[in-house]
Every structure is written in structure tokens, then in C-alpha cells.
């Protein structure tokens, strides 16, 4: 899976979770860039990403990822 393919799928997940068709995420996107991305929504997002990509993030990764770029790195690492 290429980085571009991950982003394509990831954008769909973000749009679905935050109910906003305008969202397009990048490596630098953080919780501060998306209005509804608070601690409540964070776990919903993580669970949705796990389901979409068929993988599990450790709790360390769940709470430790600083931006979307780190999330994509982790997805690519697990996808092997």
C-alpha cells in the first residue's frame, strides 16, 4: 500500500467520523486543525481507522501520535 492510497482511505474515514465532506488531511494535520477533534472524538477516530485498515494501534500509539503523518507512518509500518 502506498502513502497516497493510505491518504485516500484515511480522508474517507475522517470525513465519515467528523461528518464533513470538505476534510482533506495531510502529514501536518493535527487535532487543532479540525474543530470537532477532541478527546471524545479521538478514540472514535482511532477505532474507525483500525476498522478501515484492519489493524490495531497500541495504547501508546493511540495517545502518542502527534499528527496525521505519524498515523500514516504507523499504518504503513503495520501493513508491512
Amino acid at each position: 500500500m502506498s502513502r497516497e492510497e493510505v491518504y485516500e482511505k484515511l480522508n474517507e474515514v475522517f470525513r465519515d467520523v467528523f461528518d464533513d465532506e470538505e476534510i482533506t488531511v495531510s502529514d501536518e494535520t493535527t487535532a487543532a486543525d479540525i474543530e470537532d477533534w477532541d478527546s471524545y472524538e479521538h478514540i472514535n477516530l482511532i477505532v474507525a481507522v483500525e476498522e478501515a485498515f484492519g489493524m490495531k494501534f497500541s495504547m501508546g500509539k493511540t495517545t502518542g501520535m502527534k499528527n496525521v503523518g505519524e498515523m500514516v507512518d504507523e499504518i504503513l509500518r503495520q501493513a508491512g
Partner: peptide, 8 residues
């Protein structure tokens, strides 16, 4: 727990 969760 941080060690268990592989944060550190």
C-alpha cells in the same frame, strides 16, 4: 503502563 503500552 507506559512501558506495557510501548510508549517508552
Amino acid at each position: 503502563l507506559d512501558v506495557y503500552m510501548e510508549k517508552i
